[in-house]
Design a protein around this nucleic acid. Structure first.
Lengths: 188, 188
DNA sequence: AGAATATATTTGATTGCTCAATTAAACCGC
DNA sequence: GCGGTTTAATTGAGCAATCAAATATATTCT
């Protein structure tokens, strides 16, 4: 499970350029995996050589030519395998936020409070994006007549947005609680 | 913010061997950052050369000799800087679970349900560890007489455990809901 | 007109991380 | 007494990821 998995996942829904993929990771994909521009293009080339993707067409973009990549049957197989065969080191994640929280005891009270405020601010920003995107995809779904759209990617994206919103809301509440605790401690 | 940040963070509380650090990451630290054994020892050596940590002593372990490392003043400064000066690409995380969820639409209904069951199973296991650890540290805190222990690391670890438990509980509920939705869909 | 921004792809250098394996000794169960 | 597990540190190969920057063009702002 690397960046390649994510790229294949997006391509499984529709052909895209490297630039499109970058935008999907950055906005739609709720920050679940870092996507460096250079790494995306390198991965595409590597997967092209391996026959997991193919160059569908080269169209004239707004500026430079856009290379549109599509997934191959072999790519679909690989994607399935990467999603299923991942025991991924006991579901290990990588979270700078938790790292910050865990070691924030090494900061002064003021700095710690500042950090928590930043977390709240960022979390609110993320929540807003998630809610907007969730509304957008469910709205688009309804407009298409409910069950006429048999797009499995829609369904899973739906799950991810819903979880993101639940998690973000809970995190916000939690941060407010510990902020309150720290401020009360300050009065002693 | 790399593995080094986490190592410095643990060393800021007390001197430890590489092996101790590994155990802290694996158990206590609720899977917030992957800690490869080789990478821990390499990081320690790199930070030793940079003067961020120093070799406190070499004591006879149960088998081989244990090298106990401690943090230096320069190391503390670096830790502070790494915790504070991290805008970390808009709080980016790296979550294989979300990746799996997002692209699970490429699987069959049965495979998707199996995946969700695995998530539930793993999440329950993690929750259990978190609750045990949380009880252990709050118990130890109470035994020491409440406010006599002015260990800031305890406080932040406390936050992380509490958040982990809140998040895990919410995630469990969420997974049960979408599992139910998928199974109802199956009846149509 | 000139500057900044967005589109779009690519290259180079470097670092961090992962996987696999080795060495070495003490303890445990059978 | 032998094999398996735990403790403890280390090495090597190789891939993934990051950071910085170059190139080229169309659009928007001042």
């Amino acid at each position: 499970m690397t960046l390649e998995t994510g790229i294949l996942g997006y391509l499984a829904a529709s052909p895209l350029s490297g630039y499109d993929i970058k935008k999907l990771f950055n906005s739609t994909a709720l920050y679940f995996w870092p996507a460096d521009q250079a790494q995306i293009y390198r991965s595409l080339k590597k997967m092209l050589k391996a026959g997991l993707v193919r160059l569908e067409k080269t169209e004239k973009g707004q500026t430079v030519n856009r290379k549109i990549y599509g997934i191959t049957p072999k790519g679909r197989e690989t994607l399935r395998r990467q999603i299923l065969n991942t025991e991924f080191n006991d579901f290990m994640i990588r979270s700078p936020q938790i790292m910050q929280l865990l070691f924030s005891g090494n900061l002064s009270r003021e700095e710690q409070l500042g950090l928590i405020d930043e977390h709240i601010k960022h979390n609110d920003k993320l929540l807003k994006v998630l809610k907007t995107n969730y509304e957008r995809i469910t709205g688009a779904y309804r407009q298409l007549g409910g069950d006429t759209l048999k797009n499995s990617h829609f369904t899973s994206a739906n799950y991810v947005y819903r979880w993101g919103i639940i998690r973000g809301t809970a995190y916000r509440d939690f941060l407010k609680v510990i902020k309150g605790e720290i401020m009360v401690d300050d009065l002693h």
